[in-house]
Design a protein around this nucleic acid. Structure first.
Lengths: 241, 241
DNA sequence: CGCCAGGTTGATTTCGCTCAAGCAATGTGG
DNA sequence: CCACATTGCTTGAGCGAAATCAACCTGGCG
């Protein structure tokens, strides 16, 4: 599959494809220039951490390209995946704005290019341009809604249903329909991470996958999933936006 | 205990005790006056709803006095309690700011006095006074952190540990230490709601309580809990801010 | 009084976790 | 190139925590 190479050329914020779809779309030319000068770019390999749970927040990270997992560890080393970050996503804003340490660790899943901007610069921009704060406010509000739904699902749904729901979500970014209406999803994650994402263990997920195969609901090979009748599979869930 | 009567006298926002500790502390005199004129006060009895999950957001509610539960229902009518709101708390800001429907229902637990302010007025104030947006931003960031911790705990802790953790939280608002260092908590909730708050069923909670009694960790009578050695009980948890 | 909701307790079941083993793919060093 | 470790995934067996189902008790209230 399209294992696209990540360019190591430094990209100006002005040219950044993600900017329009991110919180930074409200910055003026001047502000963007300030932002651009202050940023530093770094490349991460899978398994590396951008920041760790408990760290004080130094600033904000923008994921330009790649994939990052937001993970939280147990005392026993057991981990839960709180979410995934795709290109364009701003990381660490929660910690910066609340003034408390990071509650999750940001672990790189696919090779990633990440920009870092110091907290002082962000504060300056926030003080200067209220629209930026408003962007983050909308962003935080949406995240908060997602968190509530996630929590509730974790409490009330079975592993099977949580997994199906996860596929529903991943379909958006990683799914493709063929002409017959069948769905193919290329998972960006290992089984372990899929399990962590729905708060279960790899063994249980393997069994759940087995069950879906046996029921004829879906076909799994490696990180590819084929679902002949997606609508049927996704029907049994409380529909969500 | 202090079953204090709630006054039905309309209170000016200028005189509101909660204002200093809320997001509204940054309003100017003029703005506060605008706010005060726009507000309407309503009294709710236990069991009444301030808004329902799925409703579009009409505006913001301020809880002046009383207690409100943020609840989310399952398809089967099973509910989870996402959190409690104490006096001074602003309700519904998430929905307003994200522009999406309420994700939870706000159900009154104790008789409550609630102010309502139309969304248009809030927007006006937000446009006018960036500091207000910043207040909500901090608030949302903190809520988001709490949500992450809550989710993770729900996934990894046993019912017993989640319950003890809940007591730790409730201690802050509803606990009192005597001279011997023993802790008494007066729970503001029914057993059912306590169960919903930690994502379990009433039967399981009853058994957990029984177990804590048998272990001599705590003594329960009705909504009163006596804990002789709070430090011992709370010791076995990963400490959280 | 009877009714009912909330709470407790008991019996049983089930879902998911733990522990353990096996297997395939990948890497590594001699 | 082979022996070997390593890592990720799957499967099996057994166990345990919590859910479910059901009965019963209690206190409040019409």
């Amino acid at each position: 599959m399209a294992r696209r190479k990540i360019s190591h050329e430094p990209v100006s914020c002005f040219a950044c494809q993600n900017r329009q779809r991110s919180e930074w779309c409200v910055l003026t030319e001047n502000e963007l220039s300030r932002f651009d000068k202050a940023k530093s770019i770094r490349h991460y390999k899978p398994g590396e951490f951008i920041y760790h749970e408990g760290d004080a927040c130094q600033g904000i990270h923008c994921l330009e390209d790649g994939l990052v997992a937001l993970r939280k560890y147990n005392v026993d080393g057991q981990s839960t995946l709180l979410g995934l970050a795709n290109p364009g996503r701003t990381l660490g804003y929660r910690s910066l704005l609340s003034g408390s340490p990071h509650v999750t660790s940001a672990e790189v899943i696919k090779p990633s290019r990440v920009c870092f901007i110091d907290r002082a610069v962000i504060r300056e921009l926030l003080d200067h341009n209220p629209a930026l704060g408003y962007q983050f406010l909308r962003r935080a509000s949406k995240d908060l809604g997602r968190a509530a739904v996630l929590y509730h699902q974790g409490q009330t749904l079975s592993v099977r249903d949580r997994f199906i729901h996860l596929l529903l979500v991943l379909r958006g970014k990683y799914g493709a329909l063929d002409k017959a209406g069948a769905l193919t999803i290329e998972l960006p994650l290992s089984r372990q991470d899929l399990a962590a994402l729905i708060g279960t263990r790899p063994e249980t997920l393997a069994r759940t996958i087995r069950q879906l195969e046996d029921d004829g609901e879906a076909h799994f090979e490696g990180r590819l999933i084929h679902i002949a009748e997606p609508e049927t599979l996704f029907a049994g869930l409380g529909l969500e936006s």
